[in-house]
Amino acid sequence: MANVSVPSLMRDLTGGEASVDGSGATVAEVLHDLEARYPGFAQRLLVGDDLDPALVVVVDDRPAPLGLSTRVRVDSRIRFLPAVGGG
C-alpha cells in the first residue's frame, strides 16, 4: 500500500487523517482506490483526467515528471505539492 500524504485542505474528506494508504501500481490507480474510499479525493487533485497543472506529484521525494502515470512501489510515499519554480 502506497502511503499518500493528505494535504491539510483535503483532510475534511479523510476524517482528519494526515496520511492514508492506497493500493495501485501507479499514482492514478492509487488515487482511484482512494476515491472509492474517500469520495471526492481524486476530484480535488484533477482537472478532467489530468493532474491539476498547479500541482506536482512527488514520489519517494523525487518530483515525478510522468505525473499520474508514475509507477509506485508498495512502500512508496506520495505527496502533492504546488508546482513551483525553485523552492
Partner: peptide, 19 residues
C-alpha cells in the same frame, strides 16, 4: 481553485493552498 474544492462564486483569487 484549491484542494478544498472549487469556490461557488467567482473572485480574483485564482487559487489558494495551505501547508
Amino acid at each position: 481553485r484549491s484542494l478544498a474544492g472549487t469556490a461557488d462564486t467567482p473572485s480574483n483569487v485564482a487559487s489558494q493552498f495551505q501547508f
